[in-house]
């Protein structure tokens, strides 16, 4: 528990550190906003239409596959920590886990879901 004192304090200091220059920049920087300067950038032409983007399912698929592999690797971390103590059987159990998830990856690749269009 004592370990985390440093991390908490560092997180507070780390959040304050970039906040200070930004606030100073807001204070001492000029603030002459006009309509043209504040318009959002669209390669020099006027913005047309609402600011929303067509949903491409690729964004979602990549995040989803990442989620599945993230959870898998999280299961593997305690197994890796205990690795030196495990008999061969334990190691093979972990290998079976990894192979099952490799199958998931192969399925996803074969179904062409990991293609970026």
């Amino acid at each position: 528990m004592k370990d985390w004192t440093f991390i908490v304090i560092l997180s507070i200091v780390a959040m304050a550190t970039p906040l200070a220059p930004i606030l100073i920049g807001r204070l001492i920087g000029p603030r002459k906003g006009n309509e043209l300067k504040n318009a959002t950038y669209e390669c020099g032409v006027e913005t047309r239409g609402d600011t929303w983007v067509q949903f491409k399912v690729q964004y979602y698929i990549f995040a989803l596959v990442f989620l599945v592999f993230d959870v898998e690797v999280v299961f593997l971390y305690p197994w890796a920590v205990a690795y030196n103590r495990l008999p061969l059987f334990g190691v093979l159990a972990g290998v079976v886990f990894v192979i099952t998830l490799a199958e998931a990856l192969i399925y996803t690749i074969r179904k062409d879901a990991l293609r970026w269009i």
Binding site: G25, G29, G33, K37, N38, T40, Y41
Partner: peptide, 29 residues
């Protein structure tokens, strides 16, 4: 530091200024 921080029209101020703060904070941590 002496340049203006242009806030685009229609932008959400709090996430706009919070994003660089979080980006730096995660690296420092």
């Amino acid at each position: 530091m002496t340049k203006e921080i242009v806030i685009p029209s229609g932008a959400d101020l709090i996430p706009f200024l919070l994003a660089p703060v979080i980006a730096t904070a995660t690296v420092l941590m």
